[in-house]
């Protein structure tokens, strides 16, 4: 199965209601005001947000208003526009090999999928022959450390941990020391999930970063924020506040294989200009993939032919 096929299959279920919705809106052939309003609604249902939906539909209206259109054309049009908007932000995570270790900090709200994402990333780095270490800095949630340890075993990399309730920043300090000593390529720091409006927890995150910088001034070399595809307009607040506290360098969108469409990505790209480095479209390790704007847009609109392939 080609790479595109895979992401398409993962996203197929995600796309269905959107595709059906657009089809249902285009019962008349001529694009009129009612149809445009209907299309706007369909986009909103994909969490695109009222503003972005209005913009996309506005673009469609300017080009095609009063003309005959098929639902295929409309979907292709949206796919184009969405790909165009996301293209600048589809940038994969590039490891700088001169940094040893390359420190990756994972942040996000509770239950977004930080630990699972680290596990999958660690495994793929290990498969490429890199030396990886995991720091279990989620010392708060019960059994979070155990969860990361299981992933460490699967990926075959050491996990630095302390008992639940220990100081996260202290643990990170030790982890960096060990990692430097061992000459690791990559060190993942798994932080506890926290809601972005909890000042004291965000302060704790800042403290972790200060400690990291104490050991390695230009680290963390990447700070990835994990977002759940089911999240709605609150994603704006999440990205804004996490960026303020932790200087997020990239986004990871998980659970895109569910019925949620992750349409909020579109609005986020506009607002925050953060690269989307990875998306999760399934449970398996290989289901964590680099984000490709065109593939995402096409599969979101249920278009199976990439055209250029």
């Amino acid at each position: 199965m080609s790479w595109f096929e895979k992401i398409k299959n993962g996203l197929a279920r995600t796309a269905a209601p959107l595709v059906e919705g657009i089809g249902a809106m285009l019962t008349k052939r001529r694009l009129d005001k009612d149809t445009l309003t209907g299309l706007e609604d369909v986009l909103i249902m994909a969490d695109v947000g009222a503003k972005t939906a209005a913009e996309l539909v506005g673009e469609l209206g300017r080009e095609k208003f009063g003309k005959d259109v098929t639902d295929g054309e409309v979907r292709a049009f949206f796919a184009d526009k969405i790909a165009e908007r996301l293209e600048p932000y589809a940038r994969p995570l590039v490891l700088d090999e001169t940094k040893k270790p390359f420190v990756i900090l994972m942040v996000g709200v509770n239950g977004a999928g930080k630990t699972t994402t680290i596990g999958k990333m660690a495994k793929s780095f290990r498969d490429k022959g890199l030396k990886v270490r995991l720091a279990a800095a989620d010392t708060f949630r019960a059994a979070a450390v155990e969860q990361l340890k299981v992933w460490g075993e699967r990926a075959g990399c050491p996990v630095v941990s302390r008992e639940t309730g220990a100081d996260a920043a202290g643990l990170v300090f030790d982890a960096i020391t060990e990692s430097q000593k061992a000459g690791d390529d990559v060190l993942f720091v798994d932080t506890a999930g926290r809601l972005q409006n909890k000042t004291e927890l965000m302060d704790e995150l800042k403290k972790i970063i200060r400690i990291v910088k104490k050991k390695i001034p230009d680290a963390p070399h990447a700070c990835l924020q994990v977002l759940d595809a089911t999240v709605g307009q609150n994603a704006h607040s999440q990205v804004r506040l996490f960026s303020e506290a932790a200087d997020v360098t990239g986004l990871v969108v998980t659970k895109l294989d569910g019925s949620a469409k992750g349409g909020v990505l579109l609005a986020l790209a506009d607002e925050f200009k953060k690269p989307v480095v990875l998306i999760g479209v399934g449970e398996k390790i290989e289901d964590l993939q680099a984000f490709d704007a065109k593939d995402y847009a096409l599969s979101l609109m249920g278009i199976s032919d990439r055209g250029d392939k």
Partner: peptide, 15 residues
């Protein structure tokens, strides 16, 4: 259900 859920809440609840 997470209070942060977006439009998908409807589909999830129905299913």
């Amino acid at each position: 259900v997470d209070a942060l859920t977006g439009q998908d809440a409807v589909g999830v609840a129905r299913e």
